[in-house]
Design a protein around this nucleic acid. Structure first.
Lengths: 206, 206
DNA sequence: TAGATTGTTAATCGATTAACAATC
DNA sequence: TAGATTGTTAATCGATTAACAATC
């Protein structure tokens, strides 16, 4: 068992977790490496290899038990607890993110939603009341928030990122198209549907 | 110059395209491999290596001219033309996607938006009128649409995917958390903020 | 000229894949 | 037993990185 996962392994294990979670919701009890491969486009041998580095979780001729594999991967990724995140921006995108069950399914709790628009403050999005943006810093501390998700227009993204950094957050998810300048100890993950699309198109066109 | 790009190279070139597009919007003329690296977390040597496989686009001591590099990468990825995509689902997420400038910036045109809700049909989201879902197949043909984007609840995602496949589409972007079963010649790209978050958290917690 | 940054080489490491014995 | 699928080996390929001469 490796001491610390490589970036690639951690990324793949997270994807297995998502497939297992959904497969369980669909009522399945067990799954083969080939089935996981079909959903993730990760080679089946690679999947078995990734898993067998941590133990013998499968049964030959049968596959993997979904519940037990979920538990094992959560143990490896240490994501068994609850994690609090903050959402900045209660517009359409923010509302869509807050309403999605996908975070809750993985133990991620949207603990606060911020917006500068006074009309939105006090309303709830996805069961969370919108907090005045000016209270960001204190709320992040009070609620033990460790990740900030930016769902604001590109023009406001850098300012919001600066404020999240000022509040002490080290992980920012950026759903705007803006490029963000942050200190080197802060990780920015930018979600970019257009980029993925261009990349998919290349293989379609050639 | 390679005949056909590997998946990795095409993915990275798409990301450079995004950074260059945004840097240009910020008023920059030129950029160094180190700056691109800061925004993408892709190693600077790797970036220079990727680019130099296709020509000598940079100037030593200076960096890369953004306009000319944009043109070169578009040529390599063959994404200079306009591409039409269809959006299924005119709810909050669909509206957020349709309103984002990110697709237009890369020559991707949302040519049609579909929804089953009669109240939404005829309204516009992001300048595109919502079309009755039952007209999906004929519209896909008429408008020469090659990519389908699913912004529907998980419970409807498989049905919508089946209908997109039936209409002849070979690339589907899935913004729901559902797992989709499709024929093997259809590519599904699932966007998964929670998965990325779990993966980012691992490195934060260890 | 001095400083910066590219283009390129060489070495290493991780990902990918085929193949197959083990075994459920 | 027959069929299926894991766990593992071995070979190959691409990604990563450091280093540095070339040159703007």
């Amino acid at each position: 068992m490796p001491d610390r996962l490589t970036v690639g392994v951690a990324a793949r294990l997270s994807r297995y977790l998502q497939v297992l979670t959904q497969a369980k919701k669909m009522g399945k009890d067990r799954i083969s490496s080939q089935e996981i491969s079909d959903y993730t486009n990760i080679n089946a041998t690679q999947i078995r290899r990734d898993l067998s580095a941590f133990g013998k979780f499968g049964k030959r001729g049968v596959g993997y038990n979904i519940d037990s594999l979920l538990g094992e991967i959560r143990k490896i990724l240490r994501t068994q607890g609850q994690h609090n995140i903050a959402l900045v921006g209660a517009g359409r995108l923010g509302q869509a993110i807050a309403s999605s069950p996908i975070f809750a399914e993985h133990g991620i709790n949207i603990a606060a939603v911020f917006d500068t628009d006074p009309d939105k403050v006090g309303r709830t999005v996805g069961n969370v009341p919108v907090t005045e943006y000016s209270r960001l810093k204190e709320t992040v501390r009070e609620k033990n928030i460790i990740v900030g998700v930016l769902a604001v227009p590109a023009d406001n993204a850098q300012q919001a990122a600066d404020d999240l950094v000022d509040a002490g957050l080290k992980i920012i998810f950026n759903y705007s198209e803006a490029l963000l300048d942050v200190p080197s100890d802060v990780q920015v993950h930018t979600s970019n549907p257009a980029v993925e699309l261009l990349h998919a198109l290349y293989f379609h066109l050639t």
